[in-house]
Design a binder for these strands. Sequence first.
DNA 1: AACTGTGGCCACCTCC
DNA 2: GGAGGTGGCCACAGTT
Length: 857
Amino acid sequence: MNSPKKTNKDGKKTSELTNKQNESIISEGDYLLLSVSYDGRNSKAVANLYDQKNIRKHYDNSGHLPYLISNLTTDEIQDRYPKVYKHEGFEKFEKVRLENLIVDKQIEMTKVIAKDPLSIGGKVNSIREVLRNNSWEDRIRYHNCYIFDKGLIPGLFYNEVNGNLVKKEFQIPEELKKQITNLFSAESDEFKNTLPKILELFFTPIPHIERLALDIEVEAPENRIPDPNEAQQPVICISFAATDGFKKVLILEREGIEEGEKIEGFNVEIQKFKEEKELLEEIFNIINNYAVTLTFNGDNFDLKYLYNRANKIFKIRKDEIPIFLGREIALLKKGIHVDLYKFFHNRAIQLSAFSNKYRRVSLDEVSKALLNSQKIELDKFISDLSYNELAYYCFHDSELTLDLTQFNNNLVMDLIILLMRISKLSMEDVTRQGISSWLKNLFYFEHRQRGYLIPNPEYILSIKGEAKSRAISKGKKYLGAIVIEPTPGVFFNVVVLDFASLYPSVIQRNNLSYETINCPHKECKTNILPNTKYWVCTRKTGLSALIIGLLKELRVKWFKLKAKDKSLSPEERNMYDVIQFALKVIVNAAYGVFGFANFPLYCPPVADATTAGGRFAIEQTIKKAKELNVEVLYGDTDSVFLYNPTKEQIDELIKWSSKELEIELDVEKNFRWVALSDRKKNYLGVYPNGAVDIKGLTGKKSHTPMFLQKLFFDLITILSEVEKKEDIEPVKEKIKKLVKNSLTKLKKKLYSLEDLAFRMVLTRSLEKYKKTTPQHVKAAKQLQDSTDIKIQAGDVIFFVKTRTSDGVKPIQLARLTDIDTKKYKQAIESTFDQVLDALGISFEELTGIRTLDFFMK
DNA sequence: AACTGTGGCCACCTCC
DNA sequence: GGAGGTGGCCACAGTT
């Protein structure tokens, strides 16, 4: 396991981006802003500052209070809604002038200020409920509201000056600043004015943050997972692993449990407790020592359990427990709790950042995918483990949890800090909330900073309406991307070009934002976007176009290039890579949120116009390619597959795109050869070095049985040896052998049930399948009926195909003799056919039955 | 009464 | 977020 201590601090030259060298960059009195919360007892916002070791609480000293905005005047409110100023939480009215972007006008509004957040909203008689449709900005969590108004940026450094928080400025080296500014000399003034504020987010060093990971084990009869709401069973073990090298296991002494053999290589200190209450108190002491505590599912289990165990069973007073429970969240009173389960569950993290490397979000799966390490497998129940075994098992989980934030040079921790800076969310929030929440917060922040009214979702919808295009698939709201009909066959020397960040580029170039699309100005109405029924503003830059454009440009023109720049040190490149990573996550999601109904700035016309711009770009590119006499074999959304183009043709196309479309087109891949069938989103490409790219093919899909995935992999290995056209024929023989072997194995029942199992996720609970009963649902039902296993939505069902009346059996109930060999033969056939038909080989020809050749000869 | 073929639809997984 | 592939379910019609 990795040593948690930071290494090599010496000898390396300091650069603008080297992080973690806290002592050389951060001076006494510098605090990193980790989060802002609301202290109900003092009725004040409080900033949680990290001072290299502990959390320092900074209470608001400006008298800032929660509020909402009303479109009514003070008199009108008093007249029509007297309950407002009679409300016990009402403080006062204030006049404000705000810019309503949708109508493009400054408007006089009333700030209704309250004594506490719940008086604004959250109760049945809150002021926002009283004011109903005359209330704005009333659904913003107060701690975020405070961040916006004070312009605080979580993840940056602050000093306390005369009791005020003052941001610490890190000077970006002049030379660097100049280089970057020069890149964007052609951009608008707004762009250039906003640039420095954004640069600060990325060039402020990211400090090392000391953190503690913990994991608890609870005595569980029959291996059932104990209910953390009741916390009936005793906590028998807890382990800690921290970045400062602290490692410890606390164990509850129980009757009949043996010491057990010492486990080799495991020498973490174990402390035993006779009384569980004392154990709990010691846990709380340790937690209080750290600014950041990490868990895997601590919100819903570990911390919740500890709290309820302490409070309900041992009657420890609430104020003596360092944990604070929300509905589905467990926070710490002194420090920050990061639940990595929630973080890794985030779809943007799973997809954009870790490109779907892990499928299910469990400590075991995520660790396997990212750390190449996994949980210790147990052959008995937790309650039956000896002390030594228990300590070893439990500690390993803490260590994995800690490692998930440490691997690859603290990638995850750095990513979290960067995402905090971009989204302006507290550490607790950014690690728990989804991408739409990040973007919401980012846009809200910018609205407040610029004096814009934050519009109500219904208001945007009432003015801008739904999308005007019709989607291809039913149930979808607007037309999406184009997928080009592939030309079937094998093609040598294929170059794939793709647009760098197509949708963000369209948003930027076409000035798309909820306020600019179908804007109120008469003269803009003729500025129709190609391929759409929308016009876009010519007077003003859209806020989302500006922000997304900036982030995208920085990523594409600076950070991405620097991450690949071999002249930089590995540490520096790594840092640049994390930054471009963070930007990618945010920028890629920007288009999707405008089409997501729960996003508060939901604006289907923006999403609609974005995909339309994408379609326009790819259509024009295909047209241009044809003009240049290059054959386009295939393309999907933002890519074109070019058949044997010359260097000149490629350059010409790239130049044309940059000039005419104003979107960067790049060479993404160079294939030695590509096999295309007539199916869209399915292909196989082989690189010059023999590496293979497989897309969409069944053999690679996660539900495909193991044996078939392996078989498919073998097929790919054989094919990757093909270098030229003549190589295809001899390869057939090899494939033939492969298939024959497998078929024999199948007939002789040499594959295990595990190998033969299909794996599918039950997306809903069993009762909810009304219209049809898919196979995995059938298997799940059998399982539930004949065993006491509870089956829930989200469970992965393992089933095999059988000759029984249902046609399937769950793996737990099946035997090898039940297997329907025919069905499996079919599965092999269809999987192989997807690749082979592109190569002009038929499956039947391979298996030697009824070949055309046989009849001919 | 038991099979076979068909089309519409559903569910899942993947691509970008 | 929409597009699109695969496989299965299900109702129905037309055989066998």
